[in-house]
Amino acid sequence: MASFRLMIAAVSLSLVQLSMGSRRLMELYIPPASDQLTYHHGSVLSGDIPVSILWYGKFTPTQMSIIADFVVSLTGAPNAATPSVGQWWGTIEQLYLSNAATNSQTSTRVLLDEQVSDEQCSLGKSLTLAQIDQLAARVGTKRGGVALVFTDEDVTVEGFCSSRCGKHGSDASAGTTHIWVGNSAKQCPGQCAWPFAQPVYGPQGTPLVAPNNDVGADGMVMILASMVAGTVTNPYGDGFYQGPQDAPLEACSACPGVYGSGAYPGNAGKLLVDATTGASYNANGANRRKYNPATSSCDTLV
């Protein structure tokens, strides 16, 4: 099977990489309390977390598998090479989920559930955030689960590109959460798919090679990773965050643009590079795919 490469966005976590001969080991780094998110004694997602997907618009089978494989990689690829997406998820679990007062579970499992498509865009191709909530409700998410809504490159969404690349929300009474991420390939790749596209603002550098030769799908994975981290640690607004409740700094926004060591504005950092394709990545996942998480102190997997 051909090897695919992906990157995912930085989150508020930290792993220290050690080297022993030719073997790469990953050691959990616990940042000081001042660098960790504050727990507000509310709920987190834990135990079995069913994830359902609604594909809104037209996605190719390859695009769908790229994104679905990331979901599987969170807890369903224990044999993936290191550094791995599973280790990234394990850090979220150890630093936050296992320390929540409401968490009676000893571990979490992310389970890919139902996938449905709305290729005809039944609500049109210009959506409000309220309509995103309606689409999420269609999926029929189980209690304690997450509905993922993905919109294709021809669908515009309120605030997309101008103020957001994705968003997470919830229905506390139903005990469900949802995430929306849009494909920015046509509308704003420089804003929502950097470093795989030329940035709109700031220092200009050569874009990295998109891991699956699909700037839109690879960009969606980066945004999805950030949204997943924020959703599981602060699903209903009273979990782990810093700052005001209505504008929190969550486990997905501490180190924007940091994908490898030595990162600085306009440069994603030093990443692993596939010798054949030139694709950049820093973590392994299911089906030999590659991804890229980071940390609250901005330490990275590579």
Results as ranks from 00 to 15, higher is better:
Met1Arg: 12
Met1Ser: 13
Arg5Ala: 14
Ser14Cys: 04
Arg24Leu: 13
Met26Thr: 13
Tyr29Gln: 05
Ser34Phe: 11
Leu37Trp: 11
His40Val: 11
His41Pro: 04
Gly42Phe: 05
Leu45Phe: 08
Leu45Trp: 01
Ser46Ala: 15
Asp48Leu: 02
Pro50Asn: 11
Tyr56Cys: 06
Thr62Phe: 04
Asp69Gln: 01
Val71Asp: 09
Asn79Tyr: 09
Ala80Arg: 04
Ala81Cys: 10
Trp89Gln: 12
Thr91Phe: 04
Ser98Gly: 12
Ala100Trp: 06
Ser104Glu: 15
Gln105Leu: 11
Thr106Tyr: 07
Thr106Trp: 06
Val110Gly: 09
Leu111Phe: 10
Asp113Met: 09
Glu119Phe: 08
Gln120Met: 13
Gly124Pro: 14
Lys125Ala: 07
Lys125Ile: 10
Lys125Thr: 15
Thr128Phe: 03
Ile132Glu: 04
Ala136Tyr: 02
Gly140Asp: 12
Thr141His: 10
Lys142Arg: 15
Gly145Asn: 13
Ala147Lys: 04
Asp152Thr: 05
Asp152Tyr: 05
Asp152Ala: 03
Glu153Phe: 01
Glu153Ser: 07
Val155Asn: 00
Val155Trp: 04
Ser163Leu: 07
Lys167Cys: 00
Lys167Met: 06
His168Thr: 06
Gly169Lys: 04
Ser170Glu: 08
Asp171Leu: 03
Ala172His: 03
Ser173Thr: 10
Gly182Gln: 00
Gly182Ile: 02
Gly182Cys: 00
Pro189Ala: 06
Pro189Cys: 02
Cys192His: 02
Pro195Arg: 03
Phe196Gln: 05
Ala197Tyr: 01
Gly202Asn: 12
Pro203Asn: 14
Val209His: 14
Pro211Tyr: 10
Pro211Met: 11
Asp218Asn: 05
Gly219Ala: 02
Met220Gly: 01
Met222Asn: 03
Ile223Gly: 07
Ile223Lys: 00
Gly230Pro: 04
Gly230Leu: 03
Val232Glu: 08
Pro235Asp: 10
Tyr236Ile: 05
Tyr236His: 08
Gly239Cys: 13
Tyr241His: 10
Tyr241Gly: 06
Gly243His: 12
Gln245Asp: 12
Asp246Thr: 15
Ala247Val: 12
Pro248Lys: 05
Pro248Tyr: 09
Ala254Thr: 03
Pro256His: 00
Pro265Phe: 15
Asn267Thr: 07
Gly269Ala: 09
Leu271Ser: 06
Asp274Glu: 14
Thr276Gln: 15
Thr276Val: 14
Ser280Trp: 06
Ser280Arg: 08
Tyr281Phe: 14
Tyr281Pro: 01
Ala283His: 01
Ala283Ile: 04
Ala283Trp: 00
Arg288Ser: 11
Tyr291Ala: 07
Asn292Phe: 03
Pro293Lys: 03
Pro293Gly: 06
Cys298Asp: 11
Val302Trp: 12
